[in-house]
C-alpha cells in the first residue's frame, strides 16, 4: 500500500491523503460484499472491480486537476475526500465495528512449539504482499509500460511528445493505486476487524514508510516497510535500559518515528530518495 502511495506521489506529484480512507472502504467492502455474496473469495474480485472504478472516477473528477497545482491544494482536496468517505461509510454501513471471518481454507494455524502457533491466514497475507511487491517491481522496472510511467515521472511534457497519452496512463496508475489500497483493507479485514477511522492509523504509518524510503522510490518503500515492521515488532519485545531507565518496550509506540528521525538525520531525502539539490 505504501509503495502505491509513493508511486502515486512520485509519478503523479499528488499527495493522496485519502489513501487511508480507501483502505477503510476496502475493509468495509470486504465485510458487506462477503455477506451479500456469501464468500470472502467472491468479495475480493468484486471489491477490486469496484475500487478500480472508484479510482477512475476520482482521478477524472478531482485528481487530474491537481497535477500542476501546489501540494497544499492536494492535501486540502484529499482531506476533503477523507471526510466524504467517512460520511459515506457512516451512511452506507453505519458506525459499528464488524468482524470478517477468516476464510475456511486459511483458517488453520501452524504449530511452532507447544505454546506458540502462527495463523495460516497471516502467512497468506505475507505471501500475497510479497507477490504484489515483486509484481509491482517487475512492472515498473522491467516492462515498457513501467518505462513510460517512470518517464512520465521525470518529464511529463516530453513523454507526451513521444506519443504517449499521459492522462490516460496516469488514470490507470491512480486507479490501480486505489485498488491496491482497497485490497490491503480487504485482506486485512479478517485480522484487524473493520472499524471507523481504521484508515488513519494506516495512513500515518504509510507516510512514515514513504518518507524513510525516499519519496517516489518504490524500492525504498519496500525496504522501509520491512525496516518499520522490524522496528515496531522488536520495539515491543526487546528490553532495553539506558542509564537505569527502561527505554524499551516502554517507548515501543515511538519506535517507528524514532527510526524515521534517525533516517532523516542521516539522509534527509530518504534511503533511496533522489538527492535534494
Amino acid at each position: 500500500m505504501a509503495s502505491w502511495l509513493t508511486l502515486i506521489f512520485g509519478i503523479m506529484g499528488v499527495i493522496n491523503r485519502a489513501h487511508g480512507s480507501v483502505y477503510m472502504i476496502g475493509a468495509y467492502l470486504a465485510w458487506s460484499l462477503a455477506q451479500h455474496l456469501g464468500s470472502f473469495w467472491l468479495a475480493i474480485p468484486a471489491g477490486l472491480a469496484l475500487s478500480v472504478a472508484l479510482g477512475f472516477v476520482l482521478e477524472w473528477l478531482f485528481i487530474k486537476r491537481l497535477y500542476q497545482r501546489d501540494h497544499l491544494y492536494q492535501v486540502l482536496l484529499t482531506y476533503g475526500l477523507i471526510l466524504i468517505f467517512e460520511e459515506l461509510r457512516s451512511i452506507l454501513w453505519g458506525d459499528d465495528v464488524h468482524g470478517v471471518a477468516v476464510p475456511a481454507l486459511l483458517a488453520g494455524s501452524i504449530p511452532l512449539t507447544d505454546t506458540l502457533s502462527y495463523p495460516v491466514y497471516r502467512l497468506w497475507i505475507s505471501a500475497v504482499c510479497v507477490a504484489l511487491a515483486v509484481g509491482l517491481y517487475l512492472l515498473i522496472q522491467r516492462t515498457r509500460l513501467g518505462m513510460m510511467i517512470r518517464a512520465g515521472a521525470a518529464n511529463r511534457e516530453m513523454t507526451q511528445s513521444l506519443g504517449i497519452n499521459i492522462g490516460w496512463l496516469y488514470r490507470w496508475v491512480f486507479a490501480l493505486g486505489v485498488a491496491m489500497a482497497a485490497f490491503a483493507g480487504m485482506i486485512a479485514a479478517p485480522v484487524s476487524s473493520v472499524f471507523p477511522g481504521m484508515g488513519n492509523q494506516v495512513l500515518i504509518v504509510c507516510f512514515v514508510v514513504v518518507v524513510i524510503g525516499g519519496i517516489g522510490s518504490v524500492k525504498g518503500a519496500l525496504v522501509a516497510a520491512l525496516l518499520i515492521g522490524l522496528a515496531d515488532t522488536f520495539g515491543k519485545v526487546v528490553e532495553l535500559e539506558i542509564a537505569g531507565i527502561r527505554v524499551l518496550p516502554e517507548l515501543a509506540g515511538m519506535s517507528i518515528y524514532l527510526l524515521m528521525a534517525a533516517v532523516l538525520l542521516w539522509r534527509p531525502e530518504g534511503i533511496f530518495g533522489r538527492r535534494l539539490a
Binding site: 511534457e157 507526451q160 511528445s161 513521444l162 506519443g163 504517449i164 499521459i166 492522462g167
Partner: peptide
C-alpha cells in the same frame, strides 16, 4: 490537439 496526438 494533445501533444501525444501530434506525435502519433
Amino acid at each position: 490537439a494533445a501533444p501525444h496526438r501530434v506525435a502519433r
